[in-house]
């Protein structure tokens, strides 16, 4: 089982890398470089702030875009090209395929984010000429971004396990946007009454809570994040993405493949 899982994971990663998914790194570096003269013009205190905001936001955005656009093809492309047939004719369980794909894309995103982080810290050293303790805090924000990817990859995979790529992309993107406002949805539920309240609370728990996984502005202003929040968010991301993956398996297990 583990050897099959790792084979699928690594193959997914290898395909993504060779499909030039990592080229977005070039764009990321160009963005940082293009912003550099801008940082110079702004007063001293703001340089770092803007670099952090631009850097971390684009890390998150690039990653989510990759998660959605690679994720929607993960299953459907294999069905369309019938490569899945040759896999299912082997001693591979369908759930292994889904889980392997999940880890493969997540691995791709982690490597991608890792490389971006290196580039980002280099830019940070160039602008500030030094690293401080506050800069170590940035790793928490980056860690939360990776947790976001865990959730988004699982959701995209869930949609692509039963829907067409276009619809999967639409669903996943919609959930990404709603998830950013997850706490507002919950507050709305608190204000509402009757059936609306019930529906809104259900929706608030169903959509991914991406709001609490976005601490970019907080970190950029050097406000810390408590250790227990890091732990709880980790647990949440693991539970949520595992639940979405279980749902994907549930659907995919019984699906007739065209």
């Amino acid at each position: 089982m583990t050897s099959r899982l790792s084979a699928i994971t690594l193959n997914t990663f290898r395909e993504a890398v060779r499909d030039r998914v990592l080229y977005n790194l070039v764009l990321f570096v160009l963005l940082l470089v293009a912003c550099a003269p801008l940082f110079g013009q702004i007063s001293i205190g703001l340089e770092r702030l803007i670099l952090v905001n631009v850097g971390l936001s684009s890390m998150s955005l690039f990653g989510v875009i990759i998660a959605i656009f690679v994720g929607i093809g993960l299953v459907s492309k294999e069905i369309e090209k019938k490569t899945l047939y040759t896999i299912l004719a082997r001693p591979v369980r369908r759930w292994e395929f889904i889980v392997g794909k999940y880890f493969g894309l997540l691995l791709t995103l982690i490597v991608n984010t890792g490389l971006m982080t290196v580039g980002f810290y280099i830019a940070l050293i160039i602008t500030a000429h030094q690293l401080t303790r506050a800069d170590a805090l940035l790793l928490v924000a980056i860690y939360f971004i990776v947790l976001q990817f865990m959730v988004m990859v699982a959701l995209t995979l869930l949609f692509s396990s039963f829907s067409t790529p276009i619809f999967s992309a639409i669903f996943a993107f919609a959930l990404f946007v709603i998830g950013t406002f997850a706490e507002d949805l919950k507050n709305f539920a608190a204000l509402a009454h009757g059936a609306t309240k019930w529906l809104a609370s259900a929706a608030a728990y169903l959509v991914p809570n991406l709001a609490s996984l976005n601490v970019i502005s907080q970190i950029a202003h050097e406000h810390g994040v408590s250790g227990s929040l890091v732990l709880m968010n980790t647990i949440y991301a693991v539970f949520y993405s595992a639940a979405a993956t279980a749902a994907a398996v549930l659907i995919f297990e019984r699906r007739n493949l065209k």
Binding site: R93, R94, W95, E183, K186, N187, Y205, N209, S212, S226, S228, L229, M232, N233, I235, Y236, F239, Y240, A242, A243, A246, A247, V249, L250, E253, R254
Partner: peptide, 29 residues
């Protein structure tokens, strides 16, 4: 597999709701 996935789905989703509540509590409204 279906039965296991179903049980996991329920348990994991319940876990996500519980941890979500904790996150909300830690972060405050």
């Amino acid at each position: 597999v279906t039965a296991v996935a179903l049980v996991l789905l329920v348990v994991l989703f319940a876990g996500s709701v519980a941890s979500r509540r904790q996150v909300d509590r830690l972060r405050g409204t």
